[in-house]
Amino acid sequence: MPLHLDATLVPTRRRALKLAGLATLAAVLAPRMALATEAQVADEIKKLFSGKAMGEGKIKLDLPEIAENGLVVPINLDVESPMTEADFVKSVHVFADGNPLPQVLTYRFTPESGKASASARMRLAQTQNVIAVAEMSNGQLYSAKAQVKVTIGGCGG
């Protein structure tokens, strides 16, 4: 359902519908359905971290199971770490593997952060996985993944 996917990225959809009509709008939007696929994103993440092994655990990724509005999906992450000069979380990267542009955000922490935890709000174009990769000060990588079901305009997802 290409129209529904796009609607999340087009806040002025209602206005556009009036102007263009449903059929023309669908025709205009259809060619740019360049959503990333799961495999592509997994590949890209691997490349980004030069294929290094990633551990499980350490990251608590807090996301709604079902997001009614794909435009504003709260994300809260918490990485287990003492956050001392000797051992802290350097960075956390978040990806959404079904968005046109899968990169969501990157956090850079320091020992002064006290806690490697942060919350933000993101856009999700469709039901998909959200992936977080944390890099520790000793270079170790950890990853976590969670699926979010995106419902738009109450038409099911």
């Binding site: 956050m83 002064e112 952060s113």
Partner: peptide, 22 residues
């Protein structure tokens, strides 16, 4: 500086950010 966030287009409008400090 003790905390930096790099945001990409997948971040919602009117960006909210919370974080911690010791």
């Amino acid at each position: 500086p003790f905390f930096t966030a790099e945001w990409f287009p997948s971040i919602s409008a009117n960006p909210y950010q919370s974080f911690f400090f010791r």
